[in-house]
């Protein structure tokens, strides 16, 4: 299946300073594809260029060079308004309006019929648990509530491509779970998701694709499983006399307990045999060490590869 979005050699330079302006390179020839119907995490440290990419995709600013193809067609002024839903980072909206007024105004801009508005808005308010503040001014709502209203506005016109800039920031664990479920549902309904986040466990749970951006360059692009599927390690927990080997990392725990971290499967089997045959050492557990997106992310940023 062809990707819904293809970005090729996208570069962005912005002027900085007031009087004597200098040019700062934000994006340097980045390229990536977004598969149709997939959810893609767009990751990177602060200042990597994630928000700038979103702004270019939404037509808020123009790239200095590069091509963007949406559904195979080249676009110049951002993705088509009707097909996308966008939630900016930490939105504040009109503080004197109520979520109901805000959502109905935005829904009307997106072409939703007036008679369908109450049903759609109530549905989203129930789904994202803000029914109780639906008629309360936004300035009286908490940051997390505003964040959920922000997510609702991005999705209420059922766009095929949803761009979310830090949708999980400022949410409590319950709020994050709620948002995760909504994103899963949108994905199951066929929407394509592209979202940036610093909360990597959530990105790992939601996305099957990852793009990692560092200093304006694409450092990784591909599937989540491939990124996390490098050589695995095993952790053997034991009690008693520690076993020392050349390529084995020994990590003391409490109560005369230890952990051995082993990289080699053959060595793992040998050590297990040794422990089982020993009378001074007791085997407590053997676990496969789980690599997280956070590990891979840090490795990519520090060493250029996930391993």
């Amino acid at each position: 299946m062809s990707p819904i979005l293809e970005v090729r050699d996208l570069s962005l330079t912005v002027p900085t300073g007031h009087v004597l302006q200098k040019q700062k390179r934000i994006l340097d020839r980045i390229s990536f594809d977004i598969p149709r119907g997939a959810s893609t995490a767009y990751l990177g440290p602060n200042g990597a260029g994630k928000t700038s990419t979103f702004r270019i995709l939404c037509g808020l600013c123009k790239a200095n060079q590069g091509n963007i193809l949406y559904n195979g067609k080249s676009i110049q002024h951002g993705l088509p308004a009707k097909s996308i839903g966008f939630m900016p980072e930490q939105p504040y909206f009109y503080k004197n309006l109520t979520p109901s007024e805000l959502l109905s105004g935005l829904a009307q801009i997106s072409g939703i019929r007036k008679k369908d508005l109450p049903l759609i808005i109530n549905n989203w308010a129930e789904k994202l648990l803000f029914s109780d503040i639906l008629h309360q001014p936004l300035h009286a709502c908490s940051k997390g509530q505003v964040q959920r209203v922000g997510l609702a506005q991005a999705m209420l016109h059922e766009p095929e491509f949803i761009l979310l800039d830090e949708p999980l920031s400022g949410l409590d664990p319950l709020g994050r779970e709620l948002v995760r479920n909504v994103l899963f549902e949108a994905k199951n309904n066929g929407a394509t998701l592209l979202f940036s986040s610093h909360i990597l466990p959530d990105a790992e749970a939601i996305c099957e694709q990852v793009i990692i951006l560092n200093k304006g360059h694409t450092s990784y692009q591909g599937s989540m499983s491939k990124l996390l599927d490098f050589e695995q390690k095993w952790v053997i927990s034991l009690q008693g006399e520690p076993i020392r080997r050349k390529h084995t990392q020994l990590k003391p725990l409490t109560d005369n307990c230890y952990q051995l971290i082993i990289e080699n499967q053959k060595e793992r089997d040998e050590i297990i045999q040794l422990i089982l045959s020993s009378t001074e050492t007791k085997l407590l557990a053997v676990e496969k060490q789980r690599h997280t997106l956070e590990d891979a992310f840090i490795n990519i940023l520090n060493h250029g590869s996930a391993q």
Partner: peptide, 8 residues
């Protein structure tokens, strides 16, 4: 950033 929401 309300402007961004409107312009998109």
């Amino acid at each position: 950033r309300m402007l961004y929401v409107l312009l998109t």
